[in-house]
Amino acid sequence: MAGFKKSPWVIHYDASSCNGCDIETLACLTPVYDAERLGVINTGNPKHADIFLVTGAVNEQSRQVIQNIYHQLPEPKVVVAVGACAASGGIFRDCYNISGGVDTVIPVDVYVPGCAARPEAIIDGILKAVEVLEEKYRRIAAMADSIDQTLIVPATTEDVAEILALQKIAYQSEAEIYGDESVPALQQSLADLKEDFQRMVFLKAVVNGKIIGAVRGYSEGETAHILRLIVHPYFQGRGIGSRLVREIEKVWPAEVRRFEAFTGHRSKRNLDLYGRLGYRPFKEVPFNAAVTWVYMEKSRNES
């Protein structure tokens, strides 16, 4: 059954500008154009949407909102930039606060021209987006069967927002184990994570352009510390965590003789994972009433 073709749910965000395209997008839902006859629903909730429809140019205030909404859309997802401003910044492109079109912030799949874009053109754009959606689903379905095609590559500061979002999702299971929301990883801010990038090495696991796992670490003399191994719950238990740890061990030069990692005393999955990779616990440090950190080590020649 052609699910995606017949049921495109849209979330609509107006980034800035004159609101002309914004109004025209809503006009698509009126009796004259009735986009719902094609199964379109204007959801207002990113977690229910398939298509992210953005109108207007991106400014400093809307940049983070756009990124945030984009990351909350479940895969497969498609971005449609509606109107000249969303495509390139349009008439506002030279303004001091405008960073340009939507594609300066997130990847755009379909561009709808016009100033303002006509409702017919917008509906046309949605139907084009549906084709892209179908294509992406085919790719993801193929990817799910071959998860070993996951790429492990160094992360850059451009990935900060996505890694932080992933970190918060991945650490929820830890918060549940200890019944404690004050796990440091859940409290980390965007600025703090950016600072981590200055002093640490970051690796990310990427499937289909989306980060599904990450790990970070830094070296001190002969010891390298490995921290915050995170994998999206959807992809856990498929060997991605182990691969990330093995890859990050290779990052440091031969002078680094010893690797060190720590996790909470009741995080059985993490303890098992590091155990399988040859890490042995050597000390325990109480962190708070709920959590005791278990430190594990491994020397290079063991691997």
Partner: peptide, 14 residues
């Protein structure tokens, strides 16, 4: 159509 589509989508959880 909606339910079939939702079944194919990624399930994001808190």
């Amino acid at each position: 159509y909606d339910v079939v589509k939702l079944w194919k989508k990624e399930t994001i959880v808190v």
